[in-house]
Design a protein around this nucleic acid. Structure first.
Lengths: 112, 112
DNA sequence: CAGTATCCTTCAAGATACTG
DNA sequence: CAGTATCTTGAAGGATACTG
């Protein structure tokens, strides 16, 4: 288990959630994967601002945390597909609530 | 508006939520404040692992993001009370979902 | 009591270039 | 196509000591 997650477990369940989905782009990745399996490049195109290295790192952590599954097809050119595990799918309500709250926040602050 | 929040707005509403509540201890602070107004020292005792400087910083950011209100009583010794704004109270469902998910995660991983 | 001030460490994240 | 390797940077968080 990753160290940040382990530490969060010492504190409070809410911190566990934050430590798993709180990394940059992670919740956006999960939100996109809730629509279905995606290839690495597709994810990159859906999240234009992320660079490849960071995307890889986040996906690896999500894999280690049991949120996503990575399937490598031994082909040329390579093909790698990412999908949510059942644990990852269980984040759907969280994504929903977070998305709604974020939208409300944006509405209240469009006049920054 | 804080830079991380502004940047998140360029990306996805879920990232806005993460950028507001994703800091260390922030969601734990909010969870405790959902029970009612608390003094600085009380918060510190409810979150034993946090140090004062960090707690101060997180509270200031939450204040800047419009989540908490800080009331200073001009007394000796000083007394400062923190409470949630209406925007902060609107995080209750998020805290609830995050807490439940974190608890489930812990149950699945108690055999690390 | 509720902070600041100062200093320090770590690490997340990104830029860039290369590869099987 | 889907990565690694290497390097750099900035910000987050913390330790400790002091203060109105």
């Amino acid at each position: 288990m990753r160290t940040p997650v382990r530490r969060a477990m010492e504190v409070c369940p809410v911190e566990v959630g934050v430590s798993v989905v709180g990394g940059a782009w992670k919740l956006t990745i999960i939100k996109n994967l809730l629509e279905g399996t995606l290839r690495f490049g597709e994810l990159g195109r859906l999240i234009p601002l992320v660079n490849r290295k960071t995307l890889t790192r986040q996906l690896r952590e999500l894999e280690e945390d049991g949120i996503v599954t990575r399937v490598v097809y031994p082909e040329v050119p390579p093909k790698v597909e990412y999908s949510l595990t059942s644990l990852g799918l269980s984040l759907a309500p969280l994504v929903q609530v977070m998305n709604a709250w974020g939208e409300a926040y944006e509405r209240q602050h469009q006049d920054l």
